[in-house]
Design a protein around this nucleic acid. Sequence first.
DNA 1: ATCTAATTGTTTAATGTTAAACGAATATGC
DNA 2: GCATATTCGTTTAACATTAAACAATTAGAT
Lengths: 168, 168
Amino acid sequence: MPSHYKGRRDTLRALNAYINLARASDSLLGRMSAELERNGLTMGQFGVLETLLHLGPMCQRMLGQKLLRSGGNITLVVDNLEKHGWVRRERQRDDRRMIVIHLTPQGRKLIEGVFPEHAQAIKKEMSVLEPREQESLRRICRKLGRGGERLREQQRKREKEHDTDSTK
Amino acid sequence: MPSHYKGRRDTLRALNAYINLARASDSLLGRMSAELERNGLTMGQFGVLETLLHLGPMCQRMLGQKLLRSGGNITLVVDNLEKHGWVRRERQRDDRRMIVIHLTPQGRKLIEGVFPEHAQAIKKEMSVLEPREQESLRRICRKLGRGGERLREQQRKREKEHDTDSTK
DNA sequence: ATCTAATTGTTTAATGTTAAACGAATATGC
DNA sequence: GCATATTCGTTTAACATTAAACAATTAGAT
């Protein structure tokens, strides 16, 4: 069946790319997570602290969007960071729904110390790849992520249209 | 400081590759997970069923190695699959420590139906990449994964040596 | 043979994650 | 202005995942 052949070839290529992507990121993130926990930080906590350090104070909603995490998750992570005294919540005056999260001096000191170590660990892991391969990986993954967003937006649009249709 | 410059450049390249890899796989796996749940399967359950389908009956230990999951996790996933009647446990006669997991006819039927759908969903996600890019992604991720295994083995060796030293 | 190691699977406690339901605050339509 | 809808953060219930402690079984050393 030569007509099935190309489809099968395409599917196999996609499957192989997918499975290797999934396994590589799974094992890599696992190791990076263990590295951070040696410094007393979870992956989620590190993500929030690093975002606040590099992008400045920010409300929880925005943190969730940046980190691709749910609102409930951000609430919990910020709770734990607050317990450690690494961040503080500050309600906004003009829109009291929003809470802006700020790094405390201790939090800033912590993340400023941990981030370079973490970056070096990542550099070491990536050193099995040639510079050119690292750049390819970045470009391809960026494209793949954007592709997903595009698909998601289309889906949202479809859902909204569907909603409108069904409610009229 | 020209002596710092190259190191910084290397670090930035590694960091960019890492962050894009992490985000791409995070969002991609999230969407694939949602797709499977529409068929009543979790990612872990799908992984076990798919492995059994393509590699045949297998003990739990081996499943954990193939899927990069802990023993406790495999126990739970197999429990749930067993409750649904999709797999059965069979104790081995010659070595009663091992339990071989078999697909039941219903389980086989299920995974034989779900797998092609899932493969098509993956193909669609990957279609934002050119065939050549998919092959690059596969090759680079494979290399990155192997690199991790190599690092891990070295670490294990170091730990064993350390153990020997500390116990003598 | 017997004592010790290692291996396999299970259980438990802790944590991270999400979706859904909810209250509070704000924006919008009329 | 008032009613309704939307947005933001929180809480809750459910589940996945892991590490660590454990029991059962087998392998190895002597």
